[in-house]
């Protein structure tokens, strides 16, 4: 009994954000996209956890941080299935799904090896032309980067 309570204490957060249902292999990707490696707050994360819906999943819990939806949507390419839960005083106050934004900055590499972004220090920028199949058009070389050849930076 004592043990279970301890576990609960570790895993529940008083105030903050829980990002659940992240594809297990992309947890570190999400950490990087949200710059959590530079965050000073308590962060708990787990990966290769059991998920009824997806087989395996990852989860990240960040204390005392609440994200703008714009910021959260940046993770949509790495974790399209992610659900976001905001917690205050141990109570769930908001639940939402991430949504693919209209433009993507900095997250993905352009597929075109001759693109200026792959040859000089230029931050990549894409127009999202297909939110379902995920097709990104480079705002520099205009070539299309698709889900199958997407590489995260």
């Amino acid at each position: 009994m004592e043990k279970t309570r301890k576990e609960l204490k570790v895993s529940a957060i008083e105030n903050g954000t829980v990002i659940d249902h992240i594809p297990a292999k992309n947890v570190f990707q999400v950490i990087r996209i949200l710059n959590l490696d530079e965050c000073q707050e308590q962060i708990l994360f787990g990966t290769n956890l059991e998920s009824k819906k997806y087989g395996t999943k990852g989860i990240i819990k960040v204390s005392n941080r609440f994200f703008e939806s714009e910021e959260l949507n940046k993770i949509a390419l790495a974790a399209p299935t992610a659900s976001i839960i905001e917690i205050r005083n141990f109570q769930v106050i908001k639940k939402m799904q991430v949504e693919v934004p209209g433009t993507i900055t900095k997250v993905v590499k352009c597929v075109n090896p001759n693109c200026i972004t792959n040859n000089e220090q230029v931050i990549t920028r894409f127009r999202v032309v297909d939110k379902i199949d995920i097709k990104l058009q480079c705002m520099y070389c205009e070539k299309m980067t698709e889900k199958s050849n997407m590489v995260f930076l």
């Binding site: 075109n112 200026i116 972004t117 040859n119 480079c138 520099y140 070389c141």
Partner: peptide, 25 residues
């Protein structure tokens, strides 16, 4: 020779840019 080079140049340049060909773009 690089695709997208002219667009990038226009973002950093204080004077206007005319693209006379950027790679195959």
């Amino acid at each position: 020779p690089r695709d997208g080079s002219a667009r990038y140049a226009s973002e950093v340049s204080p004077v206007p840019i005319i693209n006379a060909g950027d790679g195959a773009n």
